[in-house]
Write a protein that binds this DNA or RNA. Sequence first.
DNA 1: CTGGTATATATCATTTTGATATATCTTATC
DNA 2: GATAAGATATATCAAAATGATATATACCAG
Lengths: 183, 183
Amino acid sequence: MAREKKIHVVILGLLNHEDLTGYDIKKRIDGAIRFFWNGSFGNIYPALKELEEDKLVKSSKASEGAREKIAYHITARGKKSLENWLKEERACNELRYETLLKLFFAGASDRETALRNIELFEEEIKQDLQILKMHCKALEPIKEEEDHLYYYLTALFGAETYEAYLKWCAKAKKMLEQQSTVI
Amino acid sequence: MAREKKIHVVILGLLNHEDLTGYDIKKRIDGAIRFFWNGSFGNIYPALKELEEDKLVKSSKASEGAREKIAYHITARGKKSLENWLKEERACNELRYETLLKLFFAGASDRETALRNIELFEEEIKQDLQILKMHCKALEPIKEEEDHLYYYLTALFGAETYEAYLKWCAKAKKMLEQQSTVI
DNA sequence: CTGGTATATATCATTTTGATATATCTTATC
DNA sequence: GATAAGATATATCAAAATGATATATACCAG
């Protein structure tokens, strides 16, 4: 295994159940996957070429008319590679929340700024929570079929953690408000 | 504002209440900050040079004996820059959990692999939760003083979300086990 | 028929990550 | 008192991810 890009397994995972173009892949990532992983054209297109070089995917010109369009199909080798990754006993889980960074350093400004940043976070989370709840609602009834249980569980993870975020927001706001009146 | 590196504000935030060397900065990040932001020598040292070029920090040779050591101090300009960032109304909050990616694509392997990956995640979270709870316990009694409330709130965020993760783990494991016996 | 949006591929500069190199200081062990 | 291990300290580099931009076609509404 020469290459170690994470985008490779994201692509293989998506291609594992349907043929897609680079553009399609980006759309899929921007759909449900974005809540726990990202991808950009800047790494998708080069990755597709590398995967083809390594014979993990196979391309086919699927051009409709004048517009060029390249669809990719996973190979047996690609499926094997995907499964190997799934069985690897290490996973890199990390969170990068600028809001928490700002809160940690909030002492460099006033209490109002700290509160405002939490409110902005709260709004963002509320919106995304609505989307996650819709995903859950759509997947819950069909979770006995095929891979839907897996999709449901990732959506449920998002929904439940976002609920926890909102509870924390309320608590944090209250504490900040209390302390600012005392001082 | 020429440069836009996030590591710059992390460094400014840390230098805002004490002078530090690059190595110290890395240690601070690896302490409490790592739960929501990371930094590496590979970007800390170049960032310090850039910050000095832009006059946001000032270096002073603090060498003890033969070992070279460069301590950095924040300037008035640096404090201003930090505050501007805090007041900016946008924050990039993102989560990158390979465990969820593996779960989403778990259909490419067997149910046991999916379960195993959740168990590994659970173990990792349990360990970090202990650390976060210790942080909370240490900060809770002094949260009325100075910036401690901010530190406490970030630790509390971690502790509460990790608790939510563990609840989800239990639920997810149960669902996976139930479905595997039915099929 | 035309302007806006979606489709589609590609590239590039900037940033981050992770590993490695180098050297010194401190502490424990034998 | 030797020496090995681990912590301190700076620096650099390849690889990967990010975010923006360029280019061109297809489709649809007004």
